[in-house]
Structure formats: structure tokens, C-alpha cells
């Protein structure tokens, strides 16, 4: 899922300072699962904003909505009927949702209530960890199911580097060395010897973020 976390409440209060009538839009997809932007968080944030405004003796009208997803036009369009009655949309979806709001509603500003952080999963309740950087060319079959792009701080393909010590990365004593994990895993699978006799070729990063905005078109699916 896309993992995000709430912006500090005072940052949000400052961001919406000019507006007295806003839509607060949550999303029932990834950000609801990571407890940052679902229906529940919409309620809490709306209440916190109301408290901040009352504290300053100013009223604010907040329309709370939580869309199925903010990354699909048909759901984003669901607020079309009343969007024009409000001065801004504060979206607590990921960055995609905020941008979809901005693209669909040209006359009112779309504001981000979350900091979108990474693609990852939950380790336990309340703890999330990054797993994928969406580089566009998956090599997990060669690295024991552990991603060197994400788990190695330098995204090395022929690691580990000299900063690896006792299984930890030099970036932080708590951070595991991705390449130590890969090598340990391949040894456990009995694949280490035959897999690492050759170097990885230079990776083509144009499928990652270095190639500009990415787009996928499936002709078989188009209407």
C-alpha cells in the first residue's frame, strides 16, 4: 500500500487559514489501511481543525467526505455536486489523490493534509516499513525476494558496500544492510554460489523516476 502520515496539525491550520468553508476529503484505499486518511481520520482532523478555529474565535464549515478512492476519476467526480460551494479541498489521500482533486476541480485549490511517505507494508499494528520504490524493472527473482533498490541505502546492485557492518547499514545502527539480507537469504535458499558469479549489468533507471513521469497504456483495456 501507499503509506502516508498526517502533517502536523498546526501546518494544516496555517494552510487553510484563508478559508472558512472547506471540503475535507478522505480516501478509503491505502491511506485508510495505514490509518492516515480514512473516514476515521477525516473525523478526527475535522474536529481538531474546528477546535483550532474556535480557539481563535473564528468559525469554519467543514464538509466531511471519504471517497472510495481518490485516484480514479469516477470517485473524484462524486463531490462535483457541491464542490463549487466550498473554497478549498483539503485532501488526506496520498499525493495522487490531492493531484486528482486539483485536476478535476479547477476553480478551488486542493491542499495536502498528509505527507505521502512510501510503498510498503505493516510490520505490526501501528508500524509500517518501506518495501518498493517502483523502479519499473523488478529483479526480486534474482535477489532472494529482497529489493536492493529499497533495502540498500545506496540502491546498489552489486553490494554490499564498505558501510555494511555486522549486518547493519552505516546510515543508522537500527537499519539492516539490504545486501546482508540478500546474501543470507540466497545462502539459505542454496542459490548464492550460482547467482553471484556474474555482476549485475548497469541498471537502466529510465523506467524509474529518472525517466520523467511514467504512464502505462493498456490498449486491450481501453474503452
Amino acid at each position: 500500500m501507499i503509506v502516508a502520515q498526517a502533517k502536523p496539525i498546526e501546518d494544516i491550520v496555517t494552510m487553510i487559514d484563508r478559508y472558512d468553508k472547506i471540503i475535507l476529503a478522505g480516501c478509503k484505499a491505502c491511506v485508510a489501511v495505514c490509518a492516515a486518511g480514512g473516514e476515521k481520520e477525516v473525523g478526527i482532523l475535522a474536529s481538531a481543525i474546528t477546535l483550532a478555529r474556535k480557539r481563535d474565535g473564528r468559525a469554519i464549515e467543514i464538509r466531511e467526505v471519504t471517497l472510495e478512492r481518490q485516484c480514479d476519476p469516477e470517485y473524484v467526480e462524486q463531490i462535483r455536486g457541491f464542490a463549487g460551494d466550498y473554497q478549498a479541498v483539503l485532501s488526506i489521500a496520498c499525493g495522487v489523490g490531492v493531484q486528482y482533486m486539483a485536476e478535476h476541480y479547477k476553480t478551488i485549490p486542493a491542499l495536502p493534509g498528509l505527507n505521502t511517505s512510501f510503498m510498503g507494508g505493516s510490520l505490526e499494528q501501528g508500524v509500517w516499513s518501506e518495501r518498493c520504490q517502483g523502479c519499473g524493472q523488478c529483479i526480486l527473482h534474482l535477489t532472494g525476494g529482497i529489493c536492493p533498490v529499497t533495502r540498500c541505502s545506496k540502491s546498489l546492485f552489486n553490494g554490499p558496500c564498505g558501510g555494511s557492518s555486522k549486518g547493519k547499514c552505516e546510515v543508522s545502527p537500527e537499519m539492516e544492510c539490504g545486501w546482508q539480507l540478500i546474501i543470507d537469504r540466497l545462502k539459505a535458499l542454496g542459490e548464492f554460489e550460482n547467482r553471484f558469479t556474474e555482476l549485475f549489468p548497469i541498471k537502466d533507471w529510465s523506467t524509474s523516476r529518472d525517466g520523467g513521469q511514467r504512464k502505462i497504456t493498456r490498449e486491450d483495456m481501453k474503452a
Binding site: L51, K54, R55, D56, G57, R58
Partner: peptide
């Protein structure tokens, strides 16, 4: 409570 009085922080 400042929420009631509106007198700020």
C-alpha cells in the same frame, strides 16, 4: 477553555 472563549493559545 480557549475553545469556548476564542482567546487563542
Amino acid at each position: 477553555s480557549p475553545i469556548k472563549t476564542g482567546k487563542g493559545r
